[in-house]
Design a binder for these strands. Structure first.
Lengths: 257, 257
DNA sequence: CGTGACCTTTGATGTGGATCAACGGCGAGA
DNA sequence: TCTCGCCGTTGATCCACATCAAAGGTCACG
């Protein structure tokens, strides 16, 4: 058995992502509470799942799902983060979401992939064949109910992002993003605003941020600088942000009048 | 039995919409092929469904799902079209999709509605309670597989729209929209480009178009005029458009280099 | 057939964010 | 420690689209 074929241990977070952002999930290392399918699965079910996948390790910045290519596999991320995006021929890029440990990728593609996925750091993931994942669903119909829930949550997030991209100003986009990122990291007290004065890890380059928010890196940088000038955030270093006044950020994000 | 409680005849198109645009579907009048759940349902199943809904008739321009309100009901549209949208407090609006006969609405909302829905013309629809729709799912698990398929298609459409809103120019947005609308109306030869020189009904105001594409009505009007000037489309009247050169439109929409 | 309300189109002007350009900070590698 | 390359920041300028304004078009209604 080669390393590529090593059986996956599925007793790890198994949240679902169906092409996009998904329910919050963290890797074994971080200690945070996990969400997703694993909550619903028995040991037997986990064992069954584990017989259907291959484990792979990918270096940083490798594109393992390419838009337009035949959709052969489904992936479950074990560690590391990936960006999901669509591109235009002239190089313009729109990041449609980020996927971290526990997310599923590729389920939305019927025939050809409709988006690309690229690792942002070294990534470990499990690969399912089409028939493998179908067998999993046949065996555990409960998965489908769960998946449907997550897919519908994805639709809600997609609508939020459409409002952001279609109608919000640069500053509103940045404020909205900071709050939604805090929510994704479960830094919000019971679904409300994030707690202030806590350093929030932000493992995204300015380029990623710009391509996610439909802006340029210069505008992203300027908007962050303005929020810093106005005392709403602090930027101790490039990969951390401290939210000083979450309520003020929320007022900007939602264009409170 | 009041008219509101009249039993629905579910022997009509029953495609699914989960908050957004959905798989193509047309009403009984139009004669086009229908997609969706009805393909998968027996007469018994349709009968079961019919006992779970109320039928309602709404006038034009009535908002029957309001963002932020408690999510009590699910709806299945029988006739007429509705717009789905999110708003900001200052009145900016983003239409996230349109739903026509056969579409389901409200499934994505867990607690509060995350979007609003407004009729664009007089609309007949069926209303399900939360427990009613749950019973339907318990009775016919096949529905869930179908719903999952449709939800995933919705995610794909959502990603397309994010690319449009985040990275495309006004002209590219209009061209993309015209092609996707033709696709929705099933005017495309086997999933390819729409047939040229056929009048395409376009029952949207310029305002709706602008709010869907993240533009202003003036920019929409100017872009359509330019396409007309360049000989790519004709506009016989405000509610019809003829695509003269679909390939050229596609080149613009996809920013072919 | 006239009136008025509303929508669309077109033109003139304004502006938010893109583009172009220069500089600075930081980590890798010799 | 120096240098190089890559990012991120900041400033100057530009431009695509928004905003402001006005003139048709269309349709309902008396």
């Amino acid at each position: 058995m080669t390393s590529l074929n090593k059986i996956t241990d599925f007793r790890r977070p198994l949240a679902i992502n169906l092409a996009n952002r998904a329910a919050p999930s963290n890797c074994d290392d971080c200690g945070a509470r996990h969400h997703g399918l694993c909550d619903a699965l028995s040991d037997d079910e986990l064992g069954f799942l584990s017989r259907a996948a291959q484990r792979l390790t990918l270096p940083a910045n490798s594109v393992f799902i390419e838009e337009g290519e035949p959709a052969q596999y489904f992936y479950n991320i074990n560690s590391g983060n990936v960006r999901l995006f669509k591109s235009l021929p002239d190089g313009r890029r729109q990041i449609t979401g980020f996927a971290g440990p526990g997310y599923f990728l590729g389920l939305a593609s019927k025939d050809k992939n409709t988006f690309s996925a690229e690792t942002m750091e070294p990534v470990k993931l499990c690969r399912f064949t089409r028939s493998g994942i179908a067998a999993v669903f046949d065996e555990f119909p409960v998965l489908e109910r769960k998946l449907l829930d997550v897919a519908m949550h994805e639709l809600v997030l997609g609508q939020q992002q459409m409002l952001l991209l279609g109608r919000k100003t640069a500053l509103e986009r940045i404020a909205s993003f900071l709050l939604s990122w805090a929510e994704r990291l479960e830094m919000c007290a019971s679904g409300r605003l994030p707690r202030p004065n806590v350093a929030m890890p932000l493992p995204l380059s300015r380029t990623d941020l710009a391509d996610y928010l439909g802006l340029t890196i210069e505008t992203v940088s300027r908007s962050l600088s303005q929020l810093k000038r106005d005392g709403l955030i602090e930027i101790p270093n490039i990969h951390e942000i401290v939210l000083l006044r979450p309520q003020a950020l929320s007022d900007i994000a939602e264009a409170a009048v």
